[in-house]
């Protein structure tokens, strides 16, 4: 049963992923990407990683909704009204992608993976096998707040740096544009007059 679900989700994830670059509307591409993410998160849930699987699903639903707005902003072919070629170097990209897949698949199929654990580790029996903690989410939380605290610190710092950088990059006119490099210019150098006292 779980294998069937896995296979359906795997085929669905890859098919939706291919559809992202095949549909002619970028809004549809966003929804196809969302479908691909949800299909790909289902196998993660099957592995017993309920927290990380749900995290991927929830994050991706929100991210794709935000992405849809950006898609509309930067759409190349709005509503299919302006048919145009959205790809460059298509043939070579296809060749490289297929070659990489064949290479990775060969590595997957011909590497002697540790088979004993794979047999024992059917979902639901991880606790019975006694090899994993009772709750993977609890184990993850304890690990992040303990031995892997550095990872959490770096992630937090990187996210904070991202917030600052994103605001700086996307601000149209900051205070240095308005008040000069020493912030002393009065009145502010605005393209349109207006506001209080002007």
């Amino acid at each position: 049963m779980q294998t069937v679900i896995f296979l359906i989700c795997a085929v669905g994830a890859v098919a939706a992923g291919i559809a992202v670059f095949r549909v002619d509307s970028m809004a549809r591409a966003t929804l196809a990407l969302l479908a691909s993410f949800i299909f790909a998160a289902a196998p993660i849930l099957l592995l017993g990683l309920s927290y990380l699987g749900m995290l991927v699903i929830l994050m991706m639903v929100m991210e794709m909704m935000i992405m849809a707005v950006f898609m509309v902003m930067y759409m190349m072919n709005p509503a299919g009204l302006m048919p145009m070629k959205m790809v460059h170097n298509n043939k070579m990209s296809l060749v490289i992608a297929v070659a990489v897949f064949v290479l990775l698949a060969a590595g997957v199929l011909f590497t002697p993976w540790p088979s004993g654990t794979a047999e024992a580790a059917v979902p639901g029996s991880t606790t019975a096998a006694g090899r994993s903690a009772a709750d993977p989410t609890l184990a993850l939380g304890l690990d992040l707040m303990g031995p892997h605290m550095l990872v959490m610190i770096v992630i937090g710092l990187a996210l904070f740096a991202t917030m600052v950088a994103v605001v700086v990059l996307s601000t149209h006119r900051g205070r240095y544009d308005r008040f000069g490099d020493d912030l002393q210019r009065r009145p502010a150098d605005d393209p349109v007059r207006g506001g209080l006292g002007k």
Partner: peptide
């Protein structure tokens, strides 16, 4: 690997 390859195709081919 399939997901990665599809993503790689998009990375290389999209404008």
């Amino acid at each position: 690997a399939a997901l990665f390859a599809v993503g790689l195709y998009g990375l290389l081919s999209q404008q």
